[in-house]
């Protein structure tokens, strides 16, 4: 594969960003696509902004150059905007619509921007896809599958160099039997959510 595919995954600690990046990486190895995934651990994880990168194809390291992201997959709206330097006009910005309010806002020291403003701004930077992941995850049967919905949305965005089944395969292997159907449904609802 001569092409390079760059994906930035963002969100807040505890939203499953690292897990999602890991699933993408495993699927790539299965599909025999060269892959690098970068993660954050330790201090950076505690309640903070989490940013992982997944690079596929003809790449030799995990960090994405400015303006080179094919997609931003964000589990939280404001976090998509935090890593906006990686976008170009063609970047697909796929974001969950539910904000996570940081304690700096909770204590009244800072402000969380109006949600509509964030979405309007994101639209200026690339192709915006808003996903109501919580609603779809509940529809699938468990709120905890929110990040699986988001991975489904990414799989439906026609940028991955392998079939969605590679992703689904990795997801289903990592969950107990009784949750397989819920995860499959969450993934499929994610794919559907992005198809216009």
């Amino acid at each position: 594969m001569k092409e390079k595919i760059n994906i930035t995954l963002t969100g807040v600690g505890g939203q499953g960003v690292v897990t999602a990046a890991n699933i993408l990486g495993k699927a790539a190895v299965r599909a025999d696509v060269n892959v690098f995934v970068s993660e954050v651990h330790g201090m950076a994880q505690r309640g903070g902004s989490v940013n992982c990168t997944v690079r596929l194809g003809d790449v030799s390291g995990p960090l994405i150059p400015n303006g080179s992201a094919n997609a931003i997959l964000s589990m939280e709206p404001s976090e998509a905007l935090r890593y906006i330097q990686y976008t170009n006009k063609k970047t697909k910005i796929i974001t969950d619509i539910v904000p996570v309010i940081p304690f700096t806002v909770a204590t009244g020291d800072e402000k969380y921007p109006e949600l509509e403003k964030i979405f309007n701004e994101l639209e200026k930077y690339g192709e915006l896809y808003k996903v109501d992941a919580a609603k779809l995850a509940n529809e699938a049967g468990a709120l905890i599958t929110r990040n699986i919905v988001m991975l489904g949305a990414l799989a439906g965005a026609d940028i991955l160099p392998f079939k969605p089944d590679f992703l689904l395969g990795v997801i289903l292997e990592s969950v107990p039997n009784k949750y397989k159907d819920i995860n499959k449904k969450a993934f499929e609802l994610g794919i559907k959510s992005i198809k216009k």
Binding site: V12, G67, L81, I84, V105
Partner: peptide, 21 residues
Amino acid sequence: NPYVAAKTSDIKLPSRPPALC
């Protein structure tokens, strides 16, 4: 330089410093 960063947004984002759980 072929890597051109998209201009940063004017919208001020709240910081998320790590905190005690």
